[in-house]
């Protein structure tokens, strides 16, 4: 189960806490396309990417992931059984000719995150929508697992 975590964005005051928030569920894999100037300017690296909010109902689950400025073509959503795997890449903005960076805090690189669903998913019915930098994935529960109401026959 995901823990309730309100993400503080001020990098310095909570730096120690960040370590404890690391989960083995997610990681930013290498491939950080950052130049030297950028590394100096970037304050910190997120242990969990992307951040997610999760909702549930009898019908299934809705997952929101914060992925600002990502090309939807670069994101893969794979659902198998009771596992949802979200992977892709965030492209770093590249400096045009004559342009130098003073600060590069925005994360870039490849990411993979796997969620265990509390049910078996109907993989064919998964829907994804990307709006304003937030990816919303709707995962329906497989029909045979949905709760059923049993009619009681009168004797």
């Amino acid at each position: 189960m995901l823990e309730l975590v309100t993400w503080p964005r001020n990098p310095w005051s909570i730096f120690d806490e960040l370590e404890s928030l690391q989960t083995d569920m997610s990681r930013m894999i290498a491939g950080q396309e950052r130049d030297q100037a950028g590394d100096r300017g970037r304050a910190w690296r997120r242990p969990t990417y992307p951040l997610m909010n999760v909702w549930t109902s009898a019908d299934g689950m809705v997952i929101d992931a914060e992925l600002p400025g990502v090309d939807p073509k670069d994101v893969d959503i794979a659902v198998q059984g009771n596992e949802l795997k979200l992977s892709g890449r965030v492209n770093a903005t590249t400096a045009a000719e004559g342009e130098t960076y003073h600060r590069r805090e925005r994360p870039a690189g490849e990411f993979t995150r796997t969620l265990q669903l509390p049910f078996r998913a109907n993989a064919g019915g998964v829907k994804a929508n990307y709006k304003n930098g937030v990816l919303r994935v709707t995962v329906p529960r497989s029909e045979e697992e949905k709760p059923r109401k049993i009619a009681i026959e009168a004797a």
């Binding site: 600002p68 004559g98 342009e99 960076y101 003073h102 600060r103 925005r106 304003n132």
Partner: peptide, 26 residues
């Protein structure tokens, strides 16, 4: 809650460019 967005700041001879991640904003 108020969040501080992550930013990239770059500069060329003509201008300064500021790019900020603000997911959910339109």
């Amino acid at each position: 809650t108020v969040y501080i967005p992550d930013v990239d700041i770059s500069e060329n001879g003509e201008s300064v460019r500021l790019v900020a991640d603000m997911p959910g904003v339109d």
